[in-house]
Design a protein around this nucleic acid. Structure first.
Lengths: 153, 153
DNA sequence: TTTCTTATTTAGAATTATTCCAAGTATTGA
DNA sequence: TCAATACTTGGAATAATTCTAAATAAGAAA
């Protein structure tokens, strides 16, 4: 089940996409590079802005489409922590997300021991493919942004 | 950390709200009763429609406000599984959510053994308050809706 | 109980997030 | 190289959520 935790690129991305019947395009590659270039948790809007810097003609619809394709072929994860925009994460190592309810920032946190994933009592008719673990609380201390709710990082 | 898993009502809800400096109102009580009345995973829109049946004058803004208040005082959980609307869950027992990527339905699933919550390696500066576990996959078999993406249940 | 303060409610406008669309373009397989 | 079709674009459309200002109601204090 565990997929290659290392960032995939070039031919490899091509293969990943092909496996899912998706095509390799310069836009998808670019969006993926943008995500790898700054490994935080940007929203689609944020990805769009970053992507435009070096590829000004890219459109929002393509960013959404590319993100969907990257998620489908398993090189990017979708992160839904609150009512706001969905965020995207290019860290495919097994990890959880900590979301500060105060400043809204999202951080990757590691799962401790094996079994690293929680054991769940899933009725037979469910076929589990991925598990998302989101922690909520406050990032006291280090964070100087706490108090406002905006920046997603 | 574990709060009373039993549904809270009347005076008890009043207390819960008061503890957080929130007021008890007939609207909040009503929204809570709507959630308890059908223990699935409705969106705010869905809650609004159900709430209007017996309280036609309630407004959408109030539904959002009430849901926020109920979440804040810990009698309802917010469920963010995908890019769609946020869902609400009145089951406060420790459990995870299974979301079918095919039909979009959400089901409660129980965590197996103790420690029921996954152990995470959280840096000192984080103060964890809640943990959300979402499983994704397919609800093969029983579900006759699979194939379309809409109904949240 | 009456009054005061302030949170809450309301309807609707505004904003944000995401999807849809139709026409042109690029990719893949034959 | 060609055909078939997936993908990209910009913009419009829709969905989800938040904001606003005025009226109301809850809780505290007198």
């Amino acid at each position: 089940m565990a997929t290659d935790p290392l960032p995939v690129s070039g031919d490899s991305l091509n293969q990943r996409l092909a496996e899912k019947g998706l095509r390799f395009t310069s836009q998808r590659q670019h969006v993926y590079e943008v995500l790898l270039g700054q490994r935080d948790h940007p929203s689609a809007e944020e990805v769009f802005m970053r992507a435009k810097q070096s590829k000004p003609e890219i459109s929002m619809a393509t960013v959404y489409n590319s993100l969907d394709a990257l998620v489908k072929c398993g090189v990017v994860r979708q992160v839904n922590v609150d009512r706001g925009a969905t965020l995207y994460c290019s860290n495919m190592n097994e990890h959880a997300h900590f979301c500060c309810d105060d400043c809204g920032k999202v951080f990757d946190v590691n799962l401790k021991n094996s079994p690293r994933v929680p054991e769940v009592d899933v009725p037979g008719e469910f076929e589990v493919r991925t598990i998302d673990i989101a922690l909520h609380g406050r990032c006291t201390g280090t964070c100087e942004d706490c108090g406002r709710r905006e920046a997603h990082a």
